[in-house]
Nucleic acid binder design. Structure first.
Lengths: 101, 101
DNA sequence: CCTTTGTTTCGTTATTCTACGAAATACAAA
DNA sequence: TTTGTATTTCGTAGAATAACGAAACAAAGG
């Protein structure tokens, strides 16, 4: 059944990006990765700085990947995480015009 | 018990603002209010454009108020909602520098 | 092949969120 | 005082989130 959508696609997308950022651990991770934008990082690098279970960290990374803000390149035996520049830029400009209204 | 906080106050605050924005209905409301920044709006004005129960709308407004992004002035028999300019500006600049890293 | 290393998935539990309608509140006007 | 209008709070239910440890996986090195 087609639910009646009163909000736009763009508003829905904003909400999705915001949700990805809506947890201190994920803000921390994004800050961490954004500060190393060309270097990228391994999950283990972050695990040393974040005192939560590795499995929990992994779930946060999964959430961020799902949102599109980061991407993970399998680079055995590691997985290299980076900011997804294209989506990061999209989110940046969406938040920018959102707040500029 | 002092939980070990690995994230900063600022990261926590970012997460709180993001959480407020993390629902399409609330993005819609904020767009609505931000577009009428000096005029402000009544809950009923929005209710006409948002096909959800008024009680649900009210809860979203409560969330937004709690986050500090909006404020409600009681102006009987209405309640006038507006963007809280000070916090709005704070959020704007936090997101701005967050994405600019 | 077995082990080690780095990481994710699974199973579970507790908490928080979202939504609704009914009831409550607050004030104005009749 | 009674009625009407605008809005919130309450009670409830179902869905989603967050956290953990145990188990699973995948590749490299012995």
């Amino acid at each position: 059944m087609a639910e009646k959508k009163y909000y736009t696609q763009s508003q829905e997308k904003m909400a999705r990006y915001a949700k990805a950022i809506a947890h201190p651990a994920r803000v921390f991770i994004l800050d961490f990765l954004a500060g190393n934008i060309d270097k990228c990082c391994y999950s283990g690098d972050m695990a040393e700085d974040i005192p939560i279970a590795r499995s929990t960290l992994s779930e946060h990374l999964k959430e961020l990947k799902k949102s599109g803000l980061i991407q993970g390149e399998i680079n055995p035996p590691y997985i290299k995480y980076c900011i997804n520049k294209e989506n990061w830029e999209e989110a940046r400009s969406m938040f920018d015009s959102f707040f500029r209204k």
